[in-house]
Amino acid sequence: MVQPSAEEFERIALPHSRAALTLARALVRNDADAEDVVQEAFLRAYKYFRGFSGENARAWLLSIVRNEGYALLRKRGQAEPVDTLDEEREPAPSPWSSEARPETPESALLRAIDGETVRQALGTLPAEFREVLVLRELEQYSYKEIAEVTQVPIGTVMSRLSRGRKLLHTRLTANADGGGRG
């Protein structure tokens, strides 16, 4: 396959720029850096496009965006050490496993919460949780496609989503409880 023209590549890549930006933003937590990450990643994707033989261009593009995002996190010294994400680790006890916890305050808190608090709370999660959460919740990716982007098994996607959501839920309700930590 010959190198496609920039226009041909744009036709394939541009429709995915929103998802790419959503992912980059979740990873690097800064709008300007996120745009740079996507620019870099798309340029890289274009240069290596000849080598792309898969069928899912979207997952391929986003995996490059992801790598670029992590590279920036590493440069800033913010990448999560993988061992903190060891799948074998005991999950934190969830506050709602006790049957006694009343229902109403939690739902009232979540209803009243503002967007900035949510963004901040999401930003405190490990990058591996942030990425699966935004791909699932904002871009409605399937587990299979998230697995392709993040290059982990589907079971790990499910586990990270589950742990990420619980952690975020805990932080959001604790944040509101404690009057704005973070």
Partner: peptide, 8 residues
């Protein structure tokens, strides 16, 4: 509600 997708 609080996190829209990122429009370029």
């Amino acid at each position: 509600r609080s996190l829209g997708p990122s429009e370029p």
